[in-house]
Amino acid sequence: MSFRQPSVLPGFGLTLGFTTFFLSAIVLLPLAALVAAAGSMHAKDLLHVVLSARAIGSYKLSFGASLLAASINLVFGFVIAWTLTRYEFPGRKLIDALIDMPFALPTAVSGIALTTVFAQNGWIGRYLEPLGIKVAYTWLGVTVALTLISMPFSVRALQPALLEVQRDLEDAAETLGATRLYAFRRIILPTVLPALLTGFTLSFARAVGEYGSVIFIAGNLPMKTEITPLLIVIHLEEFDYQGAAALGLVMLLMSFAVLLTINLLQAWGRRRLVRTGR
């Protein structure tokens, strides 16, 4: 097998060189530094830092809230993407543009805005308070913030896929006797499943790494509303670089594990599809 693929564009060697250089300089080397910093610790110290009750509480919150946020976006991102691709209504372009707002806004601004709305005397918070629901300064607030900032990823991943599901497919299913629900389950969902998973993955990855917006709404109570990135910053402020690196390494490994699982699931799904096709 030839290493080199024929292409209309010349300069394969040059572009591959650039690719490896940039990936190394801005991704691999910093990661290596992280591993090295954490690795210079004694095993006992390392375990002490990463397995402390405070750290474990923060993992639970960070990954739990991120998975929840990504799941929420899986459903509502689908609904939004569906509405935007399927219907023509006044203001559609405006809403489409609004989707990208969380991308552009400094995350701290999102956090402060959310806190204002969801605080006990905020626009929404004041109506939730009598019901006994507290959003700001609880894990719920963390989830809301993560949902907001990761929402564009799932919508944008789904839109092109939904555009491709032709109207005709649904019409065909309908003339063949399928109910809408049946057509959705058997025709639309299988067709957009890869895009759904991609959107989920991106949302999750974005949420895990989020810092700016969460610290304003979370309240940052150790063990309760403290996310791992914040704990890392706290370690840094105490000049405990090694401890910070150790926590960073744990995040890196866990994120990698989640993303790998999703990717494997996706690949398995594709293979299964092709196999049943044979």
């Binding site: 032709q166 005709d168 497919l169 019409d171 065909a172 299913a173 309908e174 003339t175 063949l176 006797g177 399928a178 109910t179 058997r186 025709i187 299988p190 067709t191 599809l273 049943t276 096709g277």
Partner: peptide, 29 residues
């Protein structure tokens, strides 16, 4: 509703279900 009319419709762009085999497509109804 269309599904209760008992008609068969063939489209210009085929509108086959791409993730299903020929057999599954034909057996859909």
């Amino acid at each position: 509703a269309a599904r209760k009319r008992g008609v068969g419709l063939v489209f210009q762009n085929y509108a086959l279900f791409r993730h299903m085999t020929v057999a599954d497509n034909i057996e859909f109804a």
